[in-house]
Design a protein around this nucleic acid. Structure first.
Lengths: 345, 345
DNA sequence: CCATTTTATGTAATCGATTTCCTTTAAATG
DNA sequence: CATTTAAAGGAAATCGATTACATAAAATGG
C-alpha cells in the first residue's frame, strides 16, 4: 500500500508538505505543489482515512438507522439524505433494526465505536423498562437527528411529517363522502407517528360529531400479514365499517388482500385510504387514495440539519424540529357511501 | 472520550493487558480479567475502530454499491447481505450510483480510502472508452464480489440469477398460450443481465420456429417513463404484438401505465409478463405474471462469498460464479391468444 | 545592503489502539 | 528445595496520517 512517505520520497519533499498539498492549506510553492501532485498521480496515492481520523477526528461517514429498508418509504428517504451528504463527501453506513430497539442499541454502539460524524435515526419503538437507553440517547457523544419518528416530546433535532394532518385529511375525506362508520388500522408501537395519525383521525370524527367506536380502532405490527388479519376482523364485524383508513403502507397491502379474500370490491363495497405514495399505486387497481409523505424531502432535510449541526453546532439551529406537510392524493379507492349498496355479512 | 489507557489505569494494569482481555487472546489471569472487564463497564469503554484499524488492517466494514436503492430489488438483496455479514459484526456502507459508472468509480475510490474489508458490487453499465477502469477493477486491493450483474465473461467471484432461464420461461409461457407476436421491452445497457434475458427470449422463439421481428425488440433505460414510452410505441405499431415481456420492474410499471392510457385491458387485449416479484404485485390488479428472482438469497449468497474470501482467500472458492434459479409466477396478466378478441389499432 | 517580515519546508510529537519482545511471577518437576 | 517451564503482565515500537514548532529561504522596506 502506498502511503504518504512514499509520495514524499518520490516528490523529494517532507510528509508535512505532502499533507499540506492534499489538504490545500496553502504555504506551498507552486512548483513543489506540482511535484507533489505529480507524485500522487504517479503512485496512485489515496490518503488512508482511518489513519487520518486519528488526528482530525472526522471520518466523513454518517450512520442511518432505519427500521426496515424493504419498506419503500425508507429507500426514498435514504436517497434524499444521500443526495445532500454526498456533496460534502460523506458516506453512509446503513443499519436495519427491524423495529427492534435492542438491534438499534447494538448498531448505535457500533456506529459510536466506528466514530461516525453523525447519525440519522429512525427510531425503533421504545421497549418499556429501557428508559436508561433514552437517557443515553440524549447524551450521545455524536450528533443525532431524528427522522420521521419522535420517541417523545423533546427538544431534539428532528424532521417529521405532519401526521396529525395526514390522519385528519384522510378521515375528513371519507366523512365528506358520506361515511360514518370509519375504521382505522394503525400501528401499536409507542411512537409519535402512529399516535398522531390516530389523533388526526379522532379529531376529524369529533369535529363532525361522529362518535368514536373503539372497536373500529385496530392496532398491530406493521406487516402485510397483520394488515390481512386486522382487515379480516373489521370485515367480519356485525356492524362492519364502510370505510377503512390504514396508516401504514404494508398494512394497507394486507388490508387490500383481506378485502379480496372476502370478495369485497373496493370502492364499491368498502372505501380505503392508505398511507404513502409509491409509483405502482397509481398504476395498478384499485388505484389507492393515499396520504402521501414527502419521503425524499424528509431525508434531504434531515441530512441538511445534521450537516448544519456538524458544521456550526447544535445551537446554531433556528428551530430544532421541522414538520413537513403531507398531501392527500385522491384516486379511486374511496366511494360515496350509499346505504343500498352496502352488503352486510 | 475514554480510551484504553483510562481503562488500564482504572484496572491497575497495563494497556497490553486490557487489549488482551478485549481481544480474548488468553494469558490473562481470571482475576485480572475481571478487574479489566469491571473497569470497561464502569467507564463505558468502547474500542476506537479507526485506531484499531491501523494495527489490525481490518475495519469490519464492507461496501455495497447499488445502481438505485429505490428499485425494490436492491433493498431486498441488501437485507439478505446484511443478515449474513452482521453475524460477523460487519457494518455496511451503502452507495447509490444511479447507473452511472463515474459515480461508481468515485464511490469505489472512497471505499478504498476508507479501507473497507470488501465490496459487493452491482455494476453500473460500463461506458465505452473507460476500459482502463475495468482493468483497475480487476486489480483492486480489496476483495470484490459481483452481484446480479456481470460486466464481462470473466472468472471473478459473482452471484447472479439465471437470466437466460428467466427470459426463456417468460417467453415460452406466452408461446404456450398461443401468442406469436411477442414483444420484449428491455434495457439497453451493456450488461449481462439484459443481454441474457433477451437471449432467453430469442432462444424460446427460435425453438418454436417463430421468426424474430426486430421491431418487437425495444430497448431503453430502466425507468417508468421509458416503460411508458416504449409501451406506447409497441401499442401503436401497425402489427401490434399480442403479448409483451418486460425485463425490468420499473419499465413493467410504465408499460402497464401505457396500456391503461391506450384503453387496453390486460389480459383481455394484451398479455404481459413482468420481472421481479414484490408484495403488491399479488394484491393489486391485474395481478402480474412475473419472473421472480431470489433477491434476498442473492444478497445472502454474495455476502457469504465475500466473507469466505475475506477469511480464506479467493482461491479457497470451489467455484467463483454462482447462478441462482428464477421462478415464473403465473398470475393473471396473460391470456390465451384468440384471433377474434384482438382489437387492432 | 542589511534587518525584518513573510513564505516555504522540515522534524518530531501525536492520535488510540495492537503486538513483539522481554521480565517477572507462578506452577510444575525431579 | 532447586531448577525448569509455563503463565502473566509490562515497556515500547508501530500503524499512517496531521500539525505544532523550528528553521531556512525569499520578499520587503528603509
Amino acid at each position: 500500500m502506498v502511503k504518504i512517505t512514499d509520495v514524499a520520497k518520490k516528490a523529494g519533499v517532507s510528509v508535512a508538505t505532502v499533507s499540506r498539498v492534499i489538504n490545500r492549506q496553502g504555504n506551498v510553492k507552486k512548483s513543489t505543489e506540482e511535484k507533489v501532485l505529480e507524485a500522487i498521480k504517479e503512485l496512485d496515492y489515496i490518503p488512508n482515512f482511518p489513519a487520518r481520523y486519528l488526528k482530525t477526528k472526522r471520518t466523513l461517514t454518517i450512520g442511518i438507522i432505519v427500521p426496515d429498508i424493504t419498506n419503500p418509504f425508507f429507500p426514498i428517504a435514504f436517497r434524499g439524505a444521500e443526495s445532500v451528504v454526498k456533496q460534502e463527501d460523506y458516506t453512509i453506513i446503513l443499519c436495519n433494526t427491524f423495529e427492534d430497539e435492542y438491534e438499534e442499541m447494538r448498531y448505535l454502539s457500533i456506529l459510536e465505536a466506528k466514530k461516525v460524524d453523525g447519525i440519522l435515526l429512525i427510531k425503533a419503538p421504545p421497549r418499556s423498562g429501557n428508559e436508561q437507553y433514552m437517557e443515553k440517547l440524549n447524551n450521545l457523544p455524536v450528533p443525532i437527528v431524528y427522522l420521521d419518528r419522535l420517541p417523545q416530546f423533546q427538544d431534539i433535532p428532528a424532521v417529521v411529517a405532519d401526521n396529525i394532518g395526514g390522519g385528519y385529511a384522510a378521515t375528513t375525506h371519507l366523512i365528506k363522502l358520506g361515511h360514518r362508520k370509519i375504521a382505522i388500522i394503525t400501528v401499536q408501537y409507542p411512537l409519535s407517528v402512529h399516535r398522531e395519525r390516530l389523533q388526526g383521525y379522532v379529531n376529524a370524527l369529533r369535529e363532525h360529531n361522529i362518535s368514536i367506536n373503539k372497536f373500529y380502532i385496530k392496532k398491530g405490527i406493521p406487516t402485510i400479514e397483520e394488515g390481512i388479519s386486522l382487515g379480516h376482523s373489521l370485515i367480519n364485524m356485525k356492524d362492519r365499517p364502510t370505510a377503512i383508513f390504514a396508516t401504514n403502507n404494508k398494512m394497507t397491502i394486507g388490508l387490500m388482500r383481506a378485502l379480496e379474500m372476502a370478495g369485497l370490491q373496493c370502492p364499491q363495497d368498502i372505501s380505503v385510504v392508505g398511507y404513502d405514495d409509491f409509483d405502482w399505486e397509481n398504476v395498478f387497481h384499485p388505484r389507492l387514495t393515499v396520504v402521501a409523505q414527502p419521503a425524499y424531502q424528509m431525508g434531504e432535510t434531515a441530512a441538511w440539519l445534521l450537516i448544519k449541526i456538524l458544521r456550526d453546532g447544535v445551537d446554531s439551529l433556528p428551530n430544532k424540529k421541522i414538520i413537513l406537510s403531507v398531501e392527500l392524493k385522491i384516486r379511486e379507492s374511496c366511494g360515496i357511501y350509499r346505504q343500498s349498496k352496502l352488503k352486510m355479512p
